[in-house]
Structure formats: structure tokens, C-alpha cells
Amino acid sequence: MTLTRLPARRPEATAPVVARRDRLDKLDLKVSPYLYVAPFFAVFALVGMFPLLYTAYVSLFDWRLGDDTAKFVGVGNYTELLADPQFWNALVNTISIFLLSSVPQVIVAIAVAVLLNTNLRLRTGFRMGVLVPYVASLVAVGIIFGNLFGVNYGLVNSVLDFVGIGKIDWQADRLASHLAIATMVDWRWTGYNALIVLAAMQAIPPELNEAALIDGAGPWRRFTSITLPMLRPTVIFVVITSTIGGLQIFTEPKLFSAMPGSDTGGSTNQFQTVTLYLYQSAFDNQQLGYASAIAWMLFLVIVLAAIGNYFITRRLSR
């Protein structure tokens, strides 16, 4: 890289040794920092940037898995995708699951953080406790929740039946399946986000609260006027990361399906998300070009969502 550009022995190398050392020092000052960060960027270029760009390239072809004669179709995959009802269905499912999971998740996470910030006994125990779901293996969580939400023999339906509400077909009903999957996501991530919010909460200077207390502000007033505004950057961070995660949701809906190993997301794709459709296109239908187009569309959607998110969160917590 930069090293190779170092001047070899140039004719004026007869200059005094001190001057040469000086030049090297300057070079060192300028170049070394870049060399130190270079490994990261080299690895990123290899495993991050290259796949990203190559996916864009593949998305321009009608490329079957193992196909040696892929046909160039230009934006054909994208136009097909925009007219594909299954894609829009998957997008709506994804956004629905994302909203059903993220909105309550952030609100509950802040509430949990407030509770954890009070003077509890066994405070550390509670704080570690909310992180336990995050430690559990995602696949194990998926299998257990799939069982809990079983239509005939699931625990949730047994309880609903017992209290007289009656069984809900968590697999068949679109909204019910989204709720079940959102529950899975929330169970796993709320505690994690609560700890991040808690850390930010503890960084709020106590003087602010004390001053407000002296001015006669109640707990709710102090929460809305001091805590929430001070948490703004953290909440933005939490919202953006949960947006990225939420829009890429894959494992939960895949494992939720009653049909083991199925990528269809239910009998009528009622809970098939965009990544699940991507996976189905790539590895079941073996249409890698089409799958790559889905990947890029998803990327655009996430970028748009992240920008939108940023502005909304900024306005809300102003």
C-alpha cells in the first residue's frame, strides 16, 4: 500500500543524515496513523465492501446458483421485484413486525431503566437479570417460543382457553403471527436496550435533578424535562440499531414456522419477512440475481428508515 510509494534512494541521498531522519520523522507522523488503521479497512474492504458491491453486480444478472452462463438483464430484476406482490407482502410484514416490536420495546426499555435506576435492593442482580434473555441462544429462543405459541398444544393458547378468551391461531392469522414474533424479539432485546439507556441515565449530572427538586419539580416533570432530553442521543442510538435489526429480522420468523425448515413464512406468506424472502429466493429457488436485488432494496429501505427515524426521534425529544 502506502509503503510501496516510499521513495527509494534518490540521487540527492548525499544530503546530511540529520535532514533525512527529519524527513522520515515527518513521513512517520503523516503515514503511520493510516497504517495503524489500515488493517481494519483492508479487512472491511474484503468482507464488507466487496460483497456489497459484488451483490450489486450480481443483481444485474439472471444468475442461477451454479450457472456458468448468467444472462445480463440490467435493471430487470428490480423492475420484476417492484411488481412482485410477494416482495411487497414481505415488506409490509417486516415493517409491521418491526413496529410491533420496536415501539413497545423502546418505551419499556426506558421504563425498565428508570426502575433499575432507583434504590433497589440487589440492584446488580436485577440489572444482570434483564440481560439474561440476551445471553440465551437465539435458536433456542425461537424453538421455545414456537412451542409456546403452538396452535393446539401451546402454553399461550392453553392459558387463553382457560381464561375463556379462546384459542388464537398464531400461525394462520397474519396479525397474530406478527404479534407472536414481536414478542420473541422484545423478550430478547428489551433488557439489553434497558441497560444501554440505564448507562446513559447514570451519566446525567445529579445536580440537574437536585436543582429541579429544589425548584419543586415532581418526579414526572423531572423525567420529561431532564431525563428524557438528556437521553436523546442514546434513544436515537437505540432506535437506529433496533431499526436495522428489526428490518433484517430472519431467525425468529424462520423458526416460528410450523413447517420445520420452511422459508415460506406461513401458508400464505403471512409472516414472511424480506430477509426470509431473500433467503428463499437465493437458496430454495436458487435465483441469486433476484436475491441480490432484494438485498439492495432492503439496504435502501434501511437507509431511508434510519434517516426518517433520526428526524422523528430528534423532533420528539426536542
Binding site: 413447517m259 420452511s262 401458508s267 400464505t268 428463499q280
Partner: peptide, 19 residues
Amino acid sequence: GQIQDDVFAPALQAVEQGK
């Protein structure tokens, strides 16, 4: 194989679920 597992199986399941 795909038509059996990813097309007909879900379609039959959909009918069982009320379609």
C-alpha cells in the same frame, strides 16, 4: 421437490386454516 414442499404443502395448510 420445491413444488411439493414450498407450494402445495403451504397451499393445503392454508385450506386447513380456513382458505
